[in-house]
């Protein structure tokens, strides 16, 4: 829906602007909370007629989608801004673009129905490019490993959670099955000791898979040991809906 879409939010008419943006370069190292603060401040600087929450600490009415993990760049992420008056989407892109720091780029904006589903519901699948050290194996061996992996009924990984603030203390391990979360997986290319994977992973409130985890399972399947920590890099290419709309 690209036309103006007034909401019946009490007495006020409001507009829900869906912004598509990228988070790349050094900005991929800021956390989701850091990003939210930076974005809200940019919105204040932009002078857009944004609506504010009521209560003791008013904040701009912005709904965020699935958080990007620290270190993962995103090329087409989404958020919704609630505006008090309609601004031309092209102008909103320009004004936001001027206010945002380098590394956060607005790619597109359009109005969506204020009564439409939330971003977390709108999108249930994320696609990634993942760069993994290929070790001694060639692309064919990696392709074979992908096939074997996808043929398995379960893909179990162990997650260790460290309580914040006390590293090393009270680690709790938990086994998670990633198989239902891996929608697609294939080898996209290989060069100079790296293999590039394309994967589509499910996003669900019940759990998400990290691309690094899938890459780790694949390294195991291809006969390489675990990757050096920090050597696997993922970029989120985009978000989409796989399941048919509910209702």
């Amino acid at each position: 829906m690209s036309g103006a879409a007034p909401a019946e939010g009490g007495e006020r008419t409001r507009y829900r602007l869906r912004v598509c943006f990228s988070k790349t370069g050094r900005l991929r190292y800021i956390s989701h909370l850091d990003f939210i603060r930076a974005f809200e401040r940019a919105v204040r600087r932009s002078g857009l007629p944004v609506a504010y929450t009521e209560g003791f600490s008013p904040a701009p009415r912005i709904a965020y989608g699935w958080p990007l993990p620290v270190g993962t760049a995103g090329l087409a992420e989404y958020l919704d801004i609630e505006l008090m008056e309609r601004v031309d989407p092209g102008e909103a892109v320009v004004r936001l673009g001027r206010a945002l720091p380098r590394g956060l780029e607005v790619r597109d904006a359009r109005y969506v129905s204020p009564r439409g589903p939330a971003l977390m519901v709108e999108f249930d699948t994320a696609s990634y490019l993942v760069r993994v050290p290929s070790g001694l194996r060639g692309p064919e061996e990696w392709r074979g490993a992908v096939e074997r992996l996808l043929a398995r009924p379960t893909l179990e990984v162990t997650r260790e959670k460290e309580p914040a603030g006390s590293p090393g203390k009270g680690r709790r391990a938990r086994v998670v099955d990633l198989r239902p979360l891996v929608r697609r997986l294939r080898v996209r290319g290989a060069e100079d000791g790296w293999v590039t994977l394309f994967m589509e992973l499910a996003l669900s409130e019940k759990g998400t898979a990290r691309p690094e985890e899938v890459a780790g399972l694949l390294r195991e399947a291809v006969g390489e040991g675990p990757a050096e920590p920090g050597s696997v890099t993922a970029v989120r290419l985009g978000l989409r809906r796989e399941a048919p709309p509910r209702g």
């Binding site: 790349t24 370069g25 050094r26 190292y29 800021i30 956390s31 850091d34 620290v70 270190g71 760049a73 090329l75 590394g103 490019l129 760069r131 996209r188 290319g189 590039t196 050096e228 920590p229 920090g230 050597s231 890099t233 970029v235």
Partner: peptide, 27 residues
């Protein structure tokens, strides 16, 4: 291209990416 996608950007970073990926609060 996939290569551009992983490029940290024109200015580069003083700390290697794999180090930033391992430390707390890399920003």
């Amino acid at each position: 291209t996939p290569r551009d996608v992983f490029d940290p950007g024109p200015s580069g970073l003083p700390v290697p990416d794999e180090v930033l990926a391992r430390v707390a609060r890399p920003a």
